[in-house]
Design a protein around this nucleic acid. Sequence first.
DNA 1: TTGGCAAATAGGAGCAGCTACTATATAGTA
DNA 2: TACTATATAGTAGCTGCTCCTATTTGCCAA
Lengths: 152, 152
Amino acid sequence: MKNIENEIDGKELKSKTEWFVTHCRRAGLKVTPQRIAVYQELLKTNEHPSAEILYQKVKQIFPSISLDTVNRTLVTLSEIGAAFVVEGSGDAKRYDAGSDKHQHFKCIKCRRIIDFHHKPFDDIKIPAYINDKFKVLRKTVYIEGICDLCDK
Amino acid sequence: MKNIENEIDGKELKSKTEWFVTHCRRAGLKVTPQRIAVYQELLKTNEHPSAEILYQKVKQIFPSISLDTVNRTLVTLSEIGAAFVVEGSGDAKRYDAGSDKHQHFKCIKCRRIIDFHHKPFDDIKIPAYINDKFKVLRKTVYIEGICDLCDK
DNA sequence: TTGGCAAATAGGAGCAGCTACTATATAGTA
DNA sequence: TACTATATAGTAGCTGCTCCTATTTGCCAA
Ligand SMILES: [Mn+2]
Ligand SMILES: [Mn+2]
Ligand SMILES: [Zn+2]
Ligand SMILES: [Zn+2]
């Protein structure tokens, strides 16, 4: 098992931010401190935070930011491929800036979303009749259950 | 490809309802006309309706039913395994009474959820380190993209 | 460097989709 | 048939966005 739970280091944070800045410019988006802050907070965690959680974090270093800006920023990040939504049912949307291929285990009790990477899941083949009929953009595998902390 | 788009026939509706009734009794749940109606409407469609859609349908034959009852009933159905939620992001929960193994294609434009069945997706193996650490309840594979109707 | 402007933000109102509450009704049973 | 725990209808309340408007700001061009 490839452990992908280690946090991002300062060097990677910097290089990813640089990529993000050029990527924004290329997409005709302004590089605002709010956007940088939201993106960096998302990069720094592997807890798949909701907009509200990110809002609380960014507010500590940027007290005037609004929740709406965080939400809009997250939509923008998704559009340019700098983040994506991890699907959930009913609860708040959860975001991920992870660029490496990986999958998720979701605890139905505590709602934790835990990264793992299982190579065979990357390689599952989409049947031809789906590719012929639809324009496929993404395939997703996830596992649900009770996590180690909740199962006592 | 196994076509699973055909609608349920009267015979199957009846037998599934009978199963549902005994299953409710066994679980100590009362068999109310509202529960039967919601369950049957869910059986009759393969469009993965939201609570609101089901509410509109059931109301036609049961005008006094409340949206809350539909929502509560759907939670109950999920608890006893008579239905499940198809995950989505942000929108209303979508429900499925399908008992046969199958997967979903989700159109990101029109939000249609289309059934298909690809045997290899049933058989994907969960890595041992996940099974060892967590109690696995479900594994899910889905495909996202643009459906044939939206892609013009 | 500075000025103009389109894009972005802050703050708040509005809305959808549940979920909780309470009085009434009813399924299961004795 | 009568009793009681469960379920329902109607409504209020809550969460998580999304829309609206006035103000600010990043970016570009002069
Ligand atoms: Mn992840
Ligand atoms: Mn289905
Ligand atoms: Zn847990
Ligand atoms: Zn579509």
